[in-house]
Design a protein around this nucleic acid. Structure first.
Lengths: 202, 202
DNA sequence: TAACTAGTTGACCGGTTGGTCTAAAGTTAC
DNA sequence: GTAACTTTAGACCAACCGGTCAACTAGTTA
């Protein structure tokens, strides 16, 4: 009964931790290895190149955020309250990271998107897809909200994009200010976007 | 009448171009130098360290964005229309960058904020301040809007933060999708935030 | 013309980067 | 026991990193 997890898993875990905090370029293969107590030869036994472990990091973080979204959406509350719940859960997430490291890391997917989208076209395509998925999840919830008459009926896709963009922006601000609470304090903005403009009196 | 601009200016211009596109870590001093047709010795004659030219890049980009904001706000239109105008000008900006390079670079300040805020505390402070300034500019406009009865009166600071966060988020999306037009298409969201929730019927 | 200064040049530094390779050590199956 | 295969190990590589430095050029002032 050996507890020792295998080297591959340890490497991935190590890369996730480091890249969440510092991004891709700022983390070296050596750093990932020594943090995982694995020597470099083993790293290149499991991963053809540094890029390949980035894929694992993206996959893991995407899974985490998807679960966060579904946790928010599973709650037995109104659709709009579910959207607010996303911000609350994101807030808790950032808060727990901050307790552990003293710093707000922000959204790993968002961070890597900005870092890699310009130079690395394949990476950009991946991020484009992932971000689109999140927006799609929000779209569904907006549709529910319209069905219930909570918000006026209109095309759902751009509103979902707007809400997701807003989420990313607030996370950016929370990182710059090192203040996770911003996510809760500014959650209202997402609801405003969902409601849309006050219809002019007719 | 020699046209040759001095090396210092060329270095800064080169650093701006490169770091706008690729960020800080991904651009090397050598790259900045060769792109500016200046040898490394000269670089370190003008700048004690790489970090010091980053300061110039930040300064220049901040100036650019401040001018963009004031250009939007100087227009002879309603305060809310001014806020929408920020998105339109940002759209034009990204569009022109895209025509030149084929890629949306996003907001240099936002990019560098995410890249450097975690590891480099002094940098984070600088970005915190700059981002706060932009929000303050929006605050003023919101106050005008309230004075005119365009939107309901309530504390202005969080709304300004929300609108600015939204701007950053939309730019992130525009970069991921390589679609500057998103900035115009989603500009409505900012107006929704400014209006706030539809007051519940009392 | 001599002295001084601002700017230029490129060789050079120690350290690190992503990545390779060969040899040994475990592990498994027959 | 041994053959076959997976995993570990770390020395090694060229390339590049940010940064230094002494020698040099050119323009200005005394």
């Amino acid at each position: 009964m050996v507890i020792k997890t295998n080297a591959r898993e340890r490497l991935i875990k190590s890369a996730i931790e480091l890249m969440m905090a510092k991004g891709y370029h700022a983390v070296s293969v050596n750093e990932i290895c020594s943090h995982a107590h694995v020597v470099k030869g083993s790293f290149y036994h499991y991963f053809p190149a540094k890029w390949d472990i980035l894929r694992e990091v993206i996959k893991a973080r995407d899974k985490f955020y998807q679960e966060l979204f579904y946790r928010a959406l599973a709650a037995d509350i109104s659709p709009l309250a579910k959207i607010r719940r996303i911000f609350e859960l994101a807030c808790q997430d950032q808060q727990s990271v901050m307790e552990a490291t003293g710093k707000v890391t922000g959204c790993t997917i968002g961070n890597l998107t900005l870092e890699l989208s310009y130079a690395d076209e394949p990476a950009r395509q991946i991020f484009r897809q992932l971000l689109g998925n999140y927006a799609a999840i929000i779209s569904q919830t907006l549709k529910q909200s319209m069905d219930m008459g909570e918000i006026p009926r209109r095309p759902v896709a751009p509103i979902a994009q707007a809400i997701f963009a807003y989420l990313q922006g607030v996370i950016l601000l929370a990182k710059a200010e090192n203040k996770p609470q911003l996510l809760e304090q500014l959650a209202d903005g997402a609801i405003s976007i969902a409601h849309g403009l006050k219809e002019d009196p007719s």
